[in-house]
Design a protein around this nucleic acid. Structure first.
Length: 561
RNA sequence: UGUCCGAUGGUGUAAUGGUAGCACUACAGAUUUUGGUUCUGUUAGUCAAGGUUCGAAUCCUUGUCGGACAACCA
């Protein structure tokens, strides 16, 4: 009789608001969100949070989500960014409502509304310099003073605004301001600028306009025109909300209202997120472009080997709230391991090879070894790889004088070669520099994997590749870009002071199993016992390049650090 | 010395006046032909002080700490 709610996931504060609004029939119980990037740079993981939030909410409540480019500043915006943003949103797995929208589509309507505000005595043209206006605005603790032009007649304002639009004045000569309250404790209400003169070519409207609306004037009205119900933005816009509402109240006579709701932006440890700092990294060639695999950009994560599903899962896990937060980058890494564990084929690759010779294996003999492609996915099947008496193994997997917990190869010790035989180390040779050059082992033919003919317990299993058929590759080992948890959080030091000198380590002499030669960019694998890797976009047949997405969890490495 | 916002284990996030839960991390154990995966367990939290109440993380007051706001950027 008591029907206990299935342990449904608890709601975040935005979902609470939405469900309340739906219950109350607000805006006809519609849910319509929007993701409103300015096309002036590449999207990063913080944007991904917002994308997942906005599109996710629309999906959850059977609503819609618009992609809207906030292109009100022609001096900063470019078509190139429009395209990359669209690609990133789609790559994440979301589809926007109808076609992408642009704030610039509303320039005409916005202009008419501005004229209306002038006619209502709620806006005026100011001739003062930027400096003067700024001075008159006061400070957060001191009220501002009124502009001498504040009480111009409606007719004069109309004329002047029209002249601004016509292009009669140079950049910066005049602005249109909302007439609100110069003494407001909220700086944004002290007669904010609505329009400025900009003689610049707009990426969509070309040279048609000489005046461009400011964010505060454009955003709420754009939301209104698109029928947005819940307009989500980050915390720094909280103080803008009274202005958002003020414009709508002056202009709109309807019960429908979009509502601005602010949430805390994402901060990730060991990286920086501001567009300016990311741009610095690119400009100073600290990284190789916006899609460098060390960048927290969506393009960078993609090239690094992150999957859309892993980023969506991450966004889901971090939640959304209003308090400042810093997410441990380890959570992002967990999310990608979790996804790749399920889908990435297991392969054998030796990053730092050392020759291993099996002395009692018949000379010139080769056999096929069958390996399971993915123990987590029965559908993934199996494959054959060659095995012979000459192999490469990982240099780290052999120690001349090992500590007690070392489960790998050492003189007189036994290990299993993954999928093949148990071998015993008989001896080894050093080169001139004293480095191990060749390891000589014997194998026990009756221990072949799957044969069941002999049960031998060994502590360790090593990955390997057959020497003659191995393919060469370059492998790029990426690590976090900064050594400091919060590189941008130091007052006394620039974030560049915390760069990790080892954020990229190139291994140029890697040996891979044969099938890894025949791949295409973006293909993802687990290099057994090492980590997850993907084929870089610059990889070519004959000169293969693999990127490390993330290492496997490594208890042995942790024990030794 | 203004206005607004926030404060729950190491990091995030729930609990909507009624058993402080979940995820990640850390640690311990089991399984394992990847020192991976999986499974089990453990440590660990309501900023402080008052008040309201049978009962407060939740409501009220005061304080403390953190953040945002003074672009013709978004």
């Amino acid at each position: 009789m008591e029907a206990p709610e299935k342990d449904k996931k608890s709601l975040n504060f935005i979902e609470n608001i939405i469900e309340e609004d739906i219950k109350n029939g607000k805006n006809d119980s519609r849910v319509h969100t929007r993701f409103p990037p300015e096309p002036n740079g590449y999207l990063h993981i913080g944007h991904a949070k917002s994308i997942c939030l906005n599109f996710g909410l629309a999906e959850k409540y059977n609503g819609k989500c618009n992609l809207r480019f906030d292109d009100t500043n022609p001096t900063k915006e470019e078509m190139e960014y429009v395209d990359s943003i669209k690609a990133d949103v789609q790559w994440l797995g979301f589809q926007w409502n109808e076609e992408p929208f642009f704030a610039s589509d509303y320039f005409e309507q916005l202009y008419e509304w501005a004229v209306l505000l002038i006619k209502k005595g709620k806006a005026y043209v100011d001739d003062q310099s930027q400096e003067l206006i700024s001075q008159q605005r006061g400070t957060p603790t001191r009220p501002g003073t009124m502009s001498p032009h504040r009480n111009r007649s409606v007719e004069e304002n109309l004329e002047l605004f029209e002249a601004m639009k016509r292009g009669d004045f140079p950049n910066g000569a005049k602005v249109l301001r909302a007439k609100i309250d110069m003494a407001s404790p909220n700086m944004h209400m002290r007669d904010p600028v609505m329009y400025r003169i900009l003689n610049a070519e707009h990426h969509r409207t070309g040279n048609k306009w000489k005046i461009y609306p400011m964010y505060d004037y454009a955003h709420g009205q754009s939301d209104y025109l698109e029928g947005i119900t819940h307009s989500l933005c980050t915390l720094e816009f909280e103080v803008h909300r009274p202005l958002y509402d003020w414009f709508l109240d002056q202009l709109i006579d309807s019960s429908y209202r979009p509502r601005q709701i602010e949430f805390a932006r994402l901060n990730l440890s060991y990286t920086v997120m501001s567009k300016r700092k990311l741009l610095d990294l690119v400009k100073q060639n600290i990284v190789n472009g916006w899609d460098d695999p060390r960048m927290p950009t969506i393009a960078g994560l993609r090239r690094r080997g992150y999957t859309p599903a892993s980023i969506r899962a991450f966004a889901d896990r971090i939640g959304v709230a209003k308090r400042d937060n810093t997410i441990d980058v380890g959570l992002l890494e967990f999310s990608v391991r979790e996804d790749l564990n399920k889908i990435a084929p297991r392969v054998m690759a030796v990053l730092d090879p050392v020759k291993l010779v099996i002395s009692n294996y018949p000379e010139n003999q080769t056999e096929e070894i069958t390996l399971i492609n993915n123990p987590e996915d029965p559908e993934a099947g199996s494959r054959n790889i060659p095995f012979s008496g000459e192999l490469f193994i990982e240099r780290d997997d052999f120690m001349i004088d090992p500590p007690k917990k070392f489960f790998r190869l050492a003189p007189d010790k036994e290990v299993r070669l993954k999928g093949a035989y148990v071998i015993r180390c008989e001896r080894y040779e050093l080169d001139e520099k004293g480095e191990v050059k060749t390891i000589f082992c014997s194998y026990d033919h009756d221990t072949k994997s799957g044969s069941g003919s002999k049960q031998v317990k060994v502590k360790g299993t090593l990955h390997w590749v057959e020497a003659k058929t191995a393919v060469d590759a370059e492998v790029r080992l990426y690590d976090r870009l900064f050594n400091d948890e919060d590189p941008a959080g130091h007052k006394d030091k620039d974030f560049m002071a915390f760069l990790n000198p080892d954020s990229l380590q190139i291994k140029s002499n890697c040996k891979l199993e044969p099938m890894l030669a025949n791949v295409s960019a973006g293909d993802k694998f687990q290099f057994q016992r090492i980590g997850y890797f993907c084929v870089d976009k610059d990889s070519m047949p004959g000169s293969l390049i693999y990127n490390r997405t993330v290492p496997l969890k490594d208890i042995w490495a942790r024990m030794n650090s």
